[in-house]
């Protein structure tokens, strides 16, 4: 399941795995304090929820078809996040670790490139910038 949440992801429980699972890979993307030499104070995420949830679900279905894994979940934060907070969590369970690592990376890459979620960096000093909005 792909979902968006305005609440702290680190406060949400991680899903339990069935007994056939030998490996669970968890990826958490965290707000970092520096990007391109700018001192980052916070990140603001905005999503087009209707389409983001549908596109995220498609990515998880593609991961389940492409890799021999048992389950895949992804949750993405919205709103204003401080440095150190979790922006995205992906949890993949499989019989073996190799497939779990592969599927987890696939999901993160696809979410970053396809799901309609945007982020604005807030820098120390008060300036802000939408990321990727200057590309031609």
């Amino acid at each position: 399941m792909f979902s968006l949440t305005p609440f702290r992801i680190e406060d949400l429980p991680k899903p339990a795995a069935p007994s056939s699972v030998g490996a669970t890979v968890i990826f958490e993307g965290i707000v970092r304090d520096v990007n391109d030499d700018h001192q980052v104070e916070a990140l603001e995420y905005e999503a087009m929820e209707s389409l983001a949830v549908k596109e995220g679900a498609k990515i998880l279905a593609q991961a389940l078809a492409k890799f021999p894994i048992e389950s895949a979940e992804c949750i993405h934060r919205t709103g204003l996040l401080q440095v150190g907070e979790v922006a995205i969590r992906v949890v993949v369970s499989a019989a073996h670790r190799k497939e779990a690592f592969g599927a987890c990376e696939f999901i993160v890459n696809e979410v970053k490139s396809r799901v309609p979620i945007w982020k604005k960096e807030h820098y120390s000093g008060g300036a802000t910038e939408w990321i990727n909005a200057d590309q031609m």
Partner: peptide, 10 residues
């Protein structure tokens, strides 16, 4: 219609 700027999730 929704125009979608380059996305930047994650």
């Amino acid at each position: 219609v929704t125009f979608i700027a380059p996305v930047a999730g994650g």
